[in-house]
Amino acid sequence: MASLEIIMTKFRDRENEPDILKANWYIIAAPCIAAANAGKDVPELYRLATNNEPKERRLLIQRRLKEALLKTGVLYGFPRLLNALYPLFKTLDDDEIDNFSPRWDSRDSAEASEKRKVRAKQYFETIWTPAGAQANLDFNMKYHRDMSR
Results as ranks from 00 to 15, higher is better:
Phe78Tyr: 14
Glu17Phe: 09
Ala112Leu: 11
Phe124Glu: 06
Tyr46Thr: 06
Pro102Phe: 04
Arg14Leu: 15
Glu111Asp: 02
Met147Gly: 02
Ser3Leu: 05
Arg64Val: 07
Thr91Val: 00
Phe11Ser: 01
Ile97Asn: 11
Leu59Asn: 11
Lys40Asn: 13
Ala68Met: 09
Thr50Glu: 07
Ala30Gly: 13
Tyr143His: 12
Thr72Gln: 10
Glu96Cys: 12
Ile6Tyr: 00
Arg47Met: 05
Ile7Lys: 06
Ala38Trp: 08
Ala135Tyr: 02
Lys115Ala: 13
Asn99Arg: 09
Ile6Val: 09
Thr9Asp: 08
Asp95Ile: 06
Leu48Cys: 01
Lys55Arg: 15
Ala133Lys: 11
Leu45Asp: 08
Ala133Pro: 12
Tyr123Ile: 14
Tyr143Val: 13
Ala112Tyr: 12
Leu92Val: 07
Leu82Arg: 08
Lys22Tyr: 12
Arg116Ile: 00
Lys71Arg: 02
Val118Glu: 15
Met8Val: 02
Lys71Glu: 11
Tyr26Leu: 03
Tyr143Thr: 10
Ala38Ser: 11
Ile61Leu: 04
Lys22Gly: 07
Thr50Cys: 15
Leu137Val: 13
Ala36Phe: 11
Trp128Glu: 14
Lys66Leu: 15
Ser3Glu: 01
Leu70Asn: 07
Glu44Ser: 15
Trp25His: 00
Pro79Cys: 03
Ala34Trp: 03
Ser148Gly: 03
Met8Pro: 02
Ser101Thr: 13
Ile28Cys: 10
Pro87His: 06
Cys32Tyr: 05
Gly77His: 10
Ala112Asn: 14
Gln134Glu: 09
Ala133His: 12
Arg64Glu: 01
Lys142Tyr: 12
Gln134Thr: 02
Lys115Val: 11
Ala84Val: 10
Arg14Asp: 07
Leu85His: 09
Asp98Pro: 05
Gly73Gln: 05
Thr9Gly: 01
Gly39Pro: 08
Leu48Ala: 01
Tyr86Ala: 02
Gly73Glu: 06
Lys90Ala: 08
Asp94Phe: 12
Pro87Glu: 04
Ile33Lys: 14
Glu114Cys: 08
Leu69Thr: 05
Ala49Phe: 07
Glu17Trp: 06
Val74His: 14
Ile7Asp: 15
